[in-house]
Protein backbone atom coordinates (compact mmCIF):
# COMPACT_ATOMS: atom_id res chain seq x y z
CA UNK A 1 0.00 0.00 0.00
CA UNK A 2 1.11 3.54 -0.73
CA UNK A 3 1.35 5.49 2.55
CA UNK A 4 -0.78 8.63 2.72
CA UNK A 5 1.06 11.73 1.57
CA UNK A 6 0.38 15.42 2.31
CA UNK A 7 -0.64 16.34 -1.26
CA UNK A 8 -4.25 15.17 -0.89
CA UNK A 9 -5.86 16.84 -3.93
CA UNK A 10 -3.32 15.18 -6.20
CA UNK A 11 -3.95 11.82 -4.52
CA UNK A 12 -7.72 11.91 -4.78
CA UNK A 13 -7.55 12.39 -8.57
CA UNK A 14 -5.16 9.50 -8.79
CA UNK A 15 -7.37 7.37 -6.61
CA UNK A 16 -10.47 8.05 -8.64
CA UNK A 17 -8.73 7.00 -11.84
CA UNK A 18 -7.41 3.93 -10.09
CA UNK A 19 -10.91 2.94 -8.99
CA UNK A 20 -12.32 3.38 -12.50
CA UNK A 21 -9.55 1.28 -14.02
CA UNK A 22 -10.05 -1.38 -11.37
CA UNK A 23 -13.77 -1.49 -12.12
CA UNK A 24 -13.19 -1.85 -15.89
CA UNK A 25 -10.72 -4.68 -15.33
CA UNK A 26 -13.18 -6.42 -13.00
CA UNK A 27 -15.93 -6.20 -15.64
CA UNK A 28 -13.67 -7.91 -18.18
CA UNK A 29 -12.96 -10.74 -15.73
CA UNK A 30 -16.64 -11.02 -14.83
CA UNK A 31 -17.53 -11.27 -18.53
CA UNK A 32 -16.14 -14.82 -18.55
CA UNK A 33 -18.76 -15.76 -15.97
CA UNK A 34 -21.41 -14.25 -18.22
CA UNK A 35 -20.30 -16.60 -21.01
CA UNK A 36 -21.01 -19.60 -18.80
CA UNK A 37 -24.35 -18.13 -17.77
CA UNK A 38 -25.12 -17.63 -21.48
CA UNK A 39 -24.20 -21.20 -22.43
CA UNK A 40 -26.15 -22.78 -19.58
CA UNK A 41 -29.11 -20.40 -20.05
CA UNK A 42 -29.40 -21.00 -23.80
CA UNK A 43 -29.06 -24.78 -23.49
CA UNK A 44 -31.50 -25.06 -20.58
CA UNK A 45 -34.28 -22.80 -21.91
CA UNK A 46 -34.26 -24.29 -25.41
CA UNK A 47 -33.98 -27.86 -24.12
CA UNK A 48 -36.89 -27.14 -21.78
CA UNK A 49 -39.04 -26.41 -24.83
CA UNK A 50 -37.87 -29.69 -26.34
CA UNK A 51 -38.58 -31.75 -23.21
CA UNK A 52 -42.12 -30.36 -23.02
CA UNK A 53 -42.86 -32.38 -26.16
CA UNK A 54 -40.52 -35.34 -25.74
CA UNK A 55 -40.30 -37.08 -22.39
CA UNK A 56 -36.90 -37.31 -20.71
CA UNK A 57 -37.46 -41.07 -20.42
CA UNK A 58 -37.87 -41.45 -24.18
CA UNK A 59 -34.83 -39.25 -24.78
CA UNK A 60 -32.64 -41.37 -22.51
CA UNK A 61 -33.95 -44.86 -23.32
CA UNK A 62 -35.23 -44.96 -26.91
CA UNK A 63 -32.72 -46.73 -29.13
CA UNK A 64 -33.56 -44.77 -32.28
CA UNK A 65 -32.66 -41.23 -33.30
CA UNK A 66 -34.74 -40.17 -36.32
CA UNK A 67 -35.88 -36.58 -35.62
CA UNK A 68 -35.89 -35.59 -39.30
CA UNK A 69 -37.89 -38.59 -40.54
CA UNK A 70 -41.65 -39.08 -40.89
CA UNK A 71 -41.58 -41.61 -38.07
CA UNK A 72 -39.89 -39.50 -35.41
CA UNK A 73 -37.84 -41.06 -32.59
CA UNK A 74 -35.82 -39.08 -30.09
CA UNK A 75 -33.44 -41.49 -28.37
CA UNK A 76 -30.00 -40.03 -27.64
CA UNK A 77 -28.47 -43.50 -27.17
CA UNK A 78 -27.28 -44.05 -30.78
CA UNK A 79 -25.56 -40.64 -30.81
CA UNK A 80 -24.07 -41.11 -27.34
CA UNK A 81 -22.88 -44.59 -28.32
CA UNK A 82 -21.26 -43.08 -31.42
CA UNK A 83 -19.42 -40.51 -29.32
CA UNK A 84 -18.25 -43.12 -26.82
CA UNK A 85 -17.18 -45.53 -29.58
CA UNK A 86 -14.96 -42.77 -31.02
CA UNK A 87 -13.68 -41.76 -27.58
CA UNK A 88 -13.03 -45.38 -26.58
CA UNK A 89 -11.10 -46.14 -29.75
CA UNK A 90 -9.14 -42.92 -29.44
CA UNK A 91 -8.34 -43.72 -25.80
CA UNK A 92 -6.98 -47.18 -26.72
CA UNK A 93 -4.54 -45.42 -29.05
CA UNK A 94 -3.73 -42.25 -27.18
CA UNK A 95 -3.59 -43.18 -23.49
CA UNK A 96 -0.77 -45.78 -23.61
CA UNK A 97 1.09 -43.93 -26.38
CA UNK A 98 0.81 -40.58 -24.64
CA UNK A 99 1.83 -41.95 -21.24
CA UNK A 100 4.86 -43.82 -22.62
CA UNK A 101 5.86 -40.69 -24.55
CA UNK A 102 5.57 -38.70 -21.32
CA UNK A 103 7.80 -41.23 -19.52
CA UNK A 104 10.33 -40.96 -22.33
CA UNK A 105 10.32 -37.15 -22.29
CA UNK A 106 10.48 -36.90 -18.51
CA UNK A 107 12.79 -39.81 -17.61
CA UNK A 108 14.87 -40.76 -20.64
CA UNK A 109 15.22 -37.97 -23.19
CA UNK A 110 18.32 -35.81 -23.17
CA UNK A 111 17.74 -32.06 -22.94
CA UNK A 112 18.39 -31.57 -26.66
CA UNK A 113 16.05 -34.37 -27.73
CA UNK A 114 13.28 -32.84 -25.61
CA UNK A 115 13.84 -29.47 -27.23
CA UNK A 116 13.15 -31.04 -30.62
CA UNK A 117 10.34 -33.44 -29.68
CA UNK A 118 8.17 -31.16 -27.56
CA UNK A 119 7.63 -28.49 -30.26
CA UNK A 120 6.81 -31.27 -32.75
CA UNK A 121 4.09 -32.56 -30.42
CA UNK A 122 2.83 -28.97 -30.06
CA UNK A 123 2.56 -28.71 -33.85
CA UNK A 124 0.55 -31.93 -33.85
CA UNK A 125 -1.79 -30.35 -31.29
CA UNK A 126 -2.11 -27.21 -33.42
CA UNK A 127 -3.22 -28.87 -36.67
CA UNK A 128 -6.85 -27.85 -37.39
CA UNK A 129 -9.34 -30.67 -36.92
CA UNK A 130 -10.69 -30.32 -40.47
CA UNK A 131 -7.20 -31.34 -41.65
CA UNK A 132 -7.37 -34.47 -39.49
CA UNK A 133 -10.72 -35.18 -41.11
CA UNK A 134 -9.20 -34.96 -44.57
CA UNK A 135 -6.35 -37.24 -43.47
CA UNK A 136 -8.79 -39.81 -42.08
CA UNK A 137 -11.00 -39.86 -45.16
CA UNK A 138 -8.32 -39.87 -47.86
CA UNK A 139 -5.53 -41.81 -46.15
CA UNK A 140 -6.68 -43.96 -43.22
CA UNK A 141 -10.06 -45.10 -44.59
CA UNK A 142 -8.60 -46.48 -47.87
CA UNK A 143 -6.02 -48.44 -45.83
CA UNK A 144 -8.74 -49.86 -43.55
CA UNK A 145 -10.87 -50.75 -46.56
CA UNK A 146 -8.02 -52.55 -48.29
CA UNK A 147 -7.45 -54.67 -45.16
CA UNK A 148 -11.15 -55.22 -44.30
CA UNK A 149 -13.09 -54.78 -47.56
CA UNK A 150 -16.50 -54.78 -45.83
CA UNK A 151 -15.64 -51.51 -44.03
CA UNK A 152 -18.04 -48.62 -44.76
CA UNK A 153 -16.66 -45.55 -46.56
CA UNK A 154 -17.54 -43.56 -43.45
CA UNK A 155 -16.60 -45.62 -40.40
CA UNK A 156 -16.00 -45.13 -36.71
CA UNK A 157 -12.55 -46.74 -36.77
CA UNK A 158 -11.07 -44.13 -39.09
CA UNK A 159 -12.48 -41.33 -36.95
CA UNK A 160 -11.27 -42.97 -33.73
CA UNK A 161 -7.74 -43.35 -35.11
CA UNK A 162 -7.33 -39.67 -36.05
CA UNK A 163 -8.97 -38.46 -32.86
CA UNK A 164 -6.54 -40.74 -31.01
CA UNK A 165 -3.58 -39.13 -32.80
CA UNK A 166 -5.09 -35.73 -32.09
CA UNK A 167 -5.23 -36.23 -28.30
CA UNK A 168 -1.78 -37.83 -27.92
CA UNK A 169 -0.21 -34.39 -27.26
CA UNK A 170 -2.78 -33.67 -24.51
CA UNK A 171 -1.98 -36.90 -22.68
CA UNK A 172 1.78 -36.61 -23.28
CA UNK A 173 2.18 -33.01 -22.18
CA UNK A 174 -0.10 -33.11 -19.11
CA UNK A 175 1.29 -36.49 -17.97
CA UNK A 176 4.82 -35.21 -18.42
CA UNK A 177 4.03 -32.25 -16.17
CA UNK A 178 2.82 -34.70 -13.54
CA UNK A 179 5.88 -36.98 -13.90
CA UNK A 180 8.29 -34.04 -13.71
CA UNK A 181 6.62 -32.86 -10.50
CA UNK A 182 7.66 -36.04 -8.68
CA UNK A 183 10.64 -35.00 -6.49
CA UNK A 184 14.05 -36.20 -7.66
CA UNK A 185 14.89 -37.45 -4.19
CA UNK A 186 12.39 -40.30 -4.68
CA UNK A 187 14.16 -41.36 -7.90
CA UNK A 188 17.58 -41.15 -6.29
CA UNK A 189 16.40 -43.20 -3.34
CA UNK A 190 15.25 -45.96 -5.68
CA UNK A 191 18.45 -45.87 -7.74
CA UNK A 192 20.42 -46.06 -4.53
CA UNK A 193 18.65 -49.35 -3.78
CA UNK A 194 19.86 -50.67 -7.15
CA UNK A 195 16.67 -50.23 -9.17
CA UNK A 196 16.86 -49.97 -12.95
CA UNK A 197 15.33 -47.05 -14.82
CA UNK A 198 12.33 -49.21 -15.77
CA UNK A 199 11.74 -50.07 -12.12
CA UNK A 200 12.12 -46.45 -11.03
CA UNK A 201 9.72 -45.28 -13.75
CA UNK A 202 7.00 -47.87 -13.22
CA UNK A 203 7.19 -48.38 -9.46
CA UNK A 204 8.18 -44.94 -8.16
CA UNK A 205 7.57 -42.14 -10.66
CA UNK A 206 4.31 -43.29 -12.32
CA UNK A 207 2.64 -44.23 -8.99
CA UNK A 208 3.81 -40.90 -7.58
CA UNK A 209 2.23 -39.02 -10.47
CA UNK A 210 -0.84 -41.23 -10.77
CA UNK A 211 -3.44 -38.59 -10.02
CA UNK A 212 -1.95 -36.18 -12.56
CA UNK A 213 -1.82 -38.93 -15.17
CA UNK A 214 -5.42 -39.90 -14.46
CA UNK A 215 -6.49 -36.26 -14.79
CA UNK A 216 -4.77 -36.03 -18.19
CA UNK A 217 -6.54 -39.22 -19.32
CA UNK A 218 -9.98 -37.88 -18.38
CA UNK A 219 -9.32 -34.51 -20.00
CA UNK A 220 -8.15 -36.20 -23.22
CA UNK A 221 -11.25 -38.43 -23.38
CA UNK A 222 -13.44 -35.40 -22.75
CA UNK A 223 -11.74 -33.70 -25.72
CA UNK A 224 -12.35 -36.75 -27.87
CA UNK A 225 -16.07 -36.63 -27.02
CA UNK A 226 -16.24 -32.92 -27.89
CA UNK A 227 -14.29 -33.34 -31.15
CA UNK A 228 -16.44 -32.38 -34.10
CA UNK A 229 -15.00 -31.93 -37.57
CA UNK A 230 -12.78 -35.01 -37.89
CA UNK A 231 -15.63 -37.32 -36.85
CA UNK A 232 -18.18 -35.48 -38.99
CA UNK A 233 -15.97 -36.00 -42.03
CA UNK A 234 -14.66 -39.50 -41.33
CA UNK A 235 -17.23 -41.36 -39.22
CA UNK A 236 -20.38 -40.48 -41.10
CA UNK A 237 -23.87 -39.19 -40.35
CA UNK A 238 -25.84 -42.34 -39.63
CA UNK A 239 -27.19 -42.68 -36.06
CA UNK A 240 -26.33 -46.27 -35.32
CA UNK A 241 -26.40 -48.12 -32.01
CA UNK A 242 -23.45 -50.39 -32.63
CA UNK A 243 -20.11 -51.47 -31.22
CA UNK A 244 -18.72 -52.36 -34.64
CA UNK A 245 -16.08 -49.73 -35.52
CA UNK A 246 -16.21 -50.63 -39.21
CA UNK A 247 -19.74 -49.28 -39.54
CA UNK A 248 -20.94 -45.78 -40.24
CA UNK A 249 -22.09 -43.94 -37.12
CA UNK A 250 -23.01 -40.45 -35.95
CA UNK A 251 -21.66 -38.71 -32.87
CA UNK A 252 -23.51 -36.07 -30.84
CA UNK A 253 -21.23 -33.37 -32.24
CA UNK A 254 -21.71 -34.54 -35.84
CA UNK A 255 -25.49 -34.44 -35.37
CA UNK A 256 -25.34 -30.83 -34.16
CA UNK A 257 -23.39 -29.90 -37.31
CA UNK A 258 -25.82 -31.79 -39.54
CA UNK A 259 -28.86 -30.22 -37.89
CA UNK A 260 -27.47 -26.70 -38.28
CA UNK A 261 -26.50 -27.27 -41.93
CA UNK A 262 -30.02 -28.37 -42.87
CA UNK A 263 -33.05 -26.12 -43.19
CA UNK A 264 -34.89 -26.98 -39.99
CA UNK A 265 -37.27 -24.09 -39.27
CA UNK A 266 -36.50 -22.15 -36.11
CA UNK A 267 -38.72 -23.11 -33.18
CA UNK A 268 -39.61 -26.51 -34.65
CA UNK A 269 -39.10 -29.66 -32.64
CA UNK A 270 -36.41 -30.80 -35.08
CA UNK A 271 -34.53 -27.56 -34.45
CA UNK A 272 -34.82 -27.89 -30.68
CA UNK A 273 -33.11 -31.31 -30.82
CA UNK A 274 -29.93 -29.35 -31.44
CA UNK A 275 -30.14 -27.89 -27.93
CA UNK A 276 -31.10 -31.15 -26.23
CA UNK A 277 -28.10 -32.89 -27.80
CA UNK A 278 -25.91 -29.85 -27.03
CA UNK A 279 -26.99 -29.93 -23.38
CA UNK A 280 -26.17 -33.65 -23.14
CA UNK A 281 -22.75 -33.06 -24.69
CA UNK A 282 -22.09 -30.09 -22.41
CA UNK A 283 -23.05 -32.00 -19.25
CA UNK A 284 -20.89 -35.00 -20.16
CA UNK A 285 -17.76 -32.98 -20.98
CA UNK A 286 -18.28 -30.59 -18.05
CA UNK A 287 -18.55 -33.39 -15.49
CA UNK A 288 -15.41 -35.05 -16.90
CA UNK A 289 -13.49 -31.76 -16.72
CA UNK A 290 -14.66 -31.13 -13.16
CA UNK A 291 -13.60 -34.63 -12.09
CA UNK A 292 -10.24 -34.11 -13.80
CA UNK A 293 -9.68 -30.82 -11.94
CA UNK A 294 -10.76 -32.34 -8.66
CA UNK A 295 -8.19 -35.13 -9.05
CA UNK A 296 -5.54 -32.58 -9.98
CA UNK A 297 -6.40 -30.47 -6.94
CA UNK A 298 -5.81 -33.44 -4.67
CA UNK A 299 -2.56 -34.19 -6.47
CA UNK A 300 -1.16 -30.71 -5.79
CA UNK A 301 -1.45 -31.23 -2.06
CA UNK A 302 0.79 -34.27 -2.14
CA UNK A 303 4.15 -32.61 -2.75
CA UNK A 304 3.61 -29.11 -1.42
Amino acid sequence: MVPSAPDLSFRSGRNRNERIIGAILFLCAALSTLVTVGIVGVLLTQSFAFFRQVSVVEFLTSTQWTPLFQDKNFGILPLAAGSFLIAGGAAIIALPTGLLAAVYLSEYAAHRTRRILKPLLEILAGIPTVVYGYFALTFITPILRSIWPETDVFNAASGAIVVGVMIIPTVASLSEDALSAVPDTLRQGAYGLGATKLEVSTRVVIPGALSGILASFILAISRAIGETMAVTIAAGNLPNLTLNPMESIQTMTAYIVQASLGDTPQGSLAHQTLYAVGLTLFLITLSMNVVSQWILGRFREEYE
Binding site: I39, E227, T253, L274
Partner: peptide, 10 residues
Protein backbone atom coordinates in the same frame (compact mmCIF):
# COMPACT_ATOMS: atom_id res chain seq x y z
CA UNK B 1 -12.76 -27.33 -21.63
CA UNK B 2 -16.14 -26.64 -23.25
CA UNK B 3 -16.29 -28.19 -26.76
CA UNK B 4 -16.09 -25.57 -29.51
CA UNK B 5 -19.39 -26.68 -31.02
CA UNK B 6 -21.16 -25.57 -27.83
CA UNK B 7 -19.79 -22.05 -28.39
CA UNK B 8 -21.30 -22.38 -31.86
CA UNK B 9 -24.73 -23.07 -30.33
CA UNK B 10 -24.28 -20.02 -28.10
Amino acid sequence: GVPSIVYGIL
